[in-house]
Design a protein around this nucleic acid. Structure first.
Lengths: 122, 122
DNA sequence: ATATATACATAGAAATCTTATGTATATAAA
DNA sequence: TTTATATACATAAGATTTCTATGTATATAT
């Protein structure tokens, strides 16, 4: 446990920049996977970013609960190997919303690149 | 004043995503302009993003003060047209830090694009 | 005259994420 | 066989950032 926490502290990059992007990330992952459970999402994010972004429990679960409360996600529970899994999937509203969120993210990246000179202005 | 606020409310896109990027944006603007004052930064951000990102006073000034307190910015005041201007410029530490922040931003954008499928995974 | 633009500043509220903590089972390693 | 690690969920308290609202003051355009 101790070692584990240390490793995390040194691995985790500055997640500050990811603030506000979590809901979009979750919705997008669920748009390309019929259903996922929380822990699975954590691992997926970790593998996609090669360990650079580590989704914390304290951020993920409240975010999932909020998206469900907003009607964007639906859930179903299942017991696997004696452990509970809570599967999340996009609702109809969720499928609409992910399109909007992705467009917002594109605009955001575009503007950020302009502001930081990370792209030729054309 | 009223009309002005309304216009702002309807123009401003979801700035949620920009959380955490403000310091990097400020430092980068100052790395390509010898010195800038607060209001000038606001206008610059507005023009670069074609009005999509509107930097609020309540975010900008505290952020400038914090960067100064951290020793990344230096200031000099000047009176122009009977109005006070407080010019900010990068300190030596600031010039080093902007390099780090820009690299973090590049990594962030790269990872976000991977997570949102906004780029071929190659 | 009045509204708008310029120019700074700060306090309180809202939102998000981190840290810390809790419960519980399965499996690999010492 | 004890210990650590991985799996799987959850929440409360604190930190940080940004937004909203408010304040002061001058210049300029209508």
């Amino acid at each position: 446990m101790y070692i584990c926490n240390y490793v995390y502290l040194y691995m985790a990059i500055n997640n500050e920049l990811f603030k506000g992007t979590l809901q979009t990330i979750i919705l997008n992952l669920l748009s390309e996977n019929e259903r996922m459970y929380g822990y699975e999402i954590t691992q997926k994010v970790k593998s996609i970013t090669q360990g650079e972004l580590l989704l914390k429990d304290g951020a993920l679960y409240p975010s999932l609960h909020k998206l469900e409360a907003e009607g964007l996600l639906e859930t179903s529970t299942q017991i696997v190997d004696n452990r509970l899994r809570k599967y999340y999937s996009l609702s109809q509203d969720g499928e609409k919303e992910v399109v909007n969120k992705l467009q917002e993210a594109r605009d955001f990246i575009q503007n950020l690149q302009l502001l930081l000179n990370l792209k030729p202005t054309i």
